[in-house]
Write a protein that binds this DNA or RNA. Sequence first.
DNA 1: GTGTTTAACGAAAACGGTTTCGTGTTAATA
DNA 2: TATTAACACGAAACCGTTTTCGTTAAACAC
Lengths: 339, 339
Amino acid sequence: MKSKITLKDIARELEVSISTVSKALKNSEEISRDTKEKVQAFARLYNYKPNNIAISLKNKRTKNIGVVIPDIVHHFFTTVIRGIEKYANAKGYNVIVCLSEESFDKEVINMEMLANGSIDGFIMSLSSETQAKNDYNHLKEVTEQGIPVVLFDRITNEIDCDKVIIDDRMGGYLATKKLIEQGKQKIALITTDDYLSVSKARGDGYRKALLDSNIELDESRILKLPTMEMDEERIRNFFDSIEFDAVLCVNEIFAVFSMRVALEKGLKIPKDVAVIGFTNGLLSKYANPSLTVVAQHGEKMGEISAQMLIEKVESEKEEETFQTKILEPTLVVRDSTIN
Amino acid sequence: MKSKITLKDIARELEVSISTVSKALKNSEEISRDTKEKVQAFARLYNYKPNNIAISLKNKRTKNIGVVIPDIVHHFFTTVIRGIEKYANAKGYNVIVCLSEESFDKEVINMEMLANGSIDGFIMSLSSETQAKNDYNHLKEVTEQGIPVVLFDRITNEIDCDKVIIDDRMGGYLATKKLIEQGKQKIALITTDDYLSVSKARGDGYRKALLDSNIELDESRILKLPTMEMDEERIRNFFDSIEFDAVLCVNEIFAVFSMRVALEKGLKIPKDVAVIGFTNGLLSKYANPSLTVVAQHGEKMGEISAQMLIEKVESEKEEETFQTKILEPTLVVRDSTIN
DNA sequence: GTGTTTAACGAAAACGGTTTCGTGTTAATA
DNA sequence: TATTAACACGAAACCGTTTTCGTTAAACAC
């Protein structure tokens, strides 16, 4: 087991000082051609690579980005991570992923762990519990320490920082409009409680679209589940209890399951019931019938988040100007609506 | 912006030495009750937290685990990550995720980045390009430096390290047997080239099952795609070119798409065609009809990998004993087969 | 021969901790 | 009273770099 070689080892071997080795490897003008060549050759031979930790301590820069998200099995979040990775890696940053699993406490613990020197900045999406509690002290602490934060998707206005979201209200609006255009009047909405910022916005878009088309809002056609977790029973009961000719769902899974329930009821899709979901994942693409969705462009979101964060991290300036980037959702039309 | 407080700050403020502060915070017996209380109170007041980087440099332990995987949008890998996170977090470790995106070069670069002090050990699954090239020097280098490595799922025998796999051969066998039991004789297999270790093993299981049941192997019923990437055209052509009454696929996506093609041909599932895939993801559960799959227990795999790695990382012993854990796949029977 | 410049290198501080090994003071013991 | 042990603390080394600021010796000018 050959252990990693250090500057000290090279210095000892070549009978020069550590400083000389360090400078030689950086091609400093201070060092003679001879010495530089000798040191560099030796370093190459023994495959010297500087120790990242030591450099981090010295520079107070880790080249690590902390990503704290509620869940990783959700397609949307994985695409965001991919976008972050892509941009961050190209800039020489590593990505430390922590899962809050929708828990406030885990979110806090993870952030505290990372905030003590492990990372240069955070990219995060709030856990549902955090949004429900409306407690953002852990975020405040971090920003007050001067650690840059970028919030994406599930954000809050309580914290001053860069933000990236899609226009969920527009997404809800576009989808609902689409259903209305297809002659649907009794459009059900399956969503979650309003504390989840994205659900709230999507619901607002839905209402706006109905209003614009002079369709009366029927609250009984709205099912609010406590979380994004699937609850087959409640969805089945919901469909038994209402009349509907279309369904809008705040995620893919609710939508695909709704299609199944409709099919089981002997309804034709999209003739009797049209369905639209959010998130353009594998599920939508390969469901039978394939699902029309509001695409959220997660990868783009990740890239932009990473870009904004790294810009802040590498900026010398002290000025505190924060921006919120709003991406436009697009409708991906498939077979669960008439095209 | 209040910057982080250090031991030095506390020492200066309280007019004691840094060593005293350090010891007091660790509740050392050496320090008087008075001083300890004073220091601890002060530290609590100013919310002192030790700098992870400094500790890492001193201890030569980062409490970070490097995870290098080919893809994060695949359900299987996300469940593995979740398992790793779960175990690692409980043990106080952070997880640095890097994506090779099936590229040999990216795999090498990512490992080199992390190997220079950023992590205590690797958990990884080989990129397809690496398996194709059969070049594992980057892994050799890392293990020779004494950095523990755990390989999961896509492994190689060229490297001596801990490994976690599922018995893919058994998975292929179980699935094929199941189809045979249901009276199917013309069982198609959609897989990838053999360099992917898992595909090879699954194919072996398929052959073994046919052999055991005295069903002649018809190579024309096997479609080998170059990678796990979807190729709708080739799959369609494949189905046009053969007779079949069942399909086994090495992933969910191929399987769900096969179902769609079969349905388009007017075939009934599972009566005319039964379908089984690998990976028990969302797709299988919510597909119409729902898909029978070989479950790979990714989360379990992640947990075990993390456990094995952390054990090696924290073990003082020099002895090099490596083990390979083989998990048993299970068949999750749904509507794409007769039950 | 004296003073000044320049090239080439080394010593040491710094990053923020941990830990070993003194050391001075006080109290207990011979 | 002299010796010793216990106590409470500090100095300094160390982890592996980077970087500033000497320092030395040779080369040059006068």
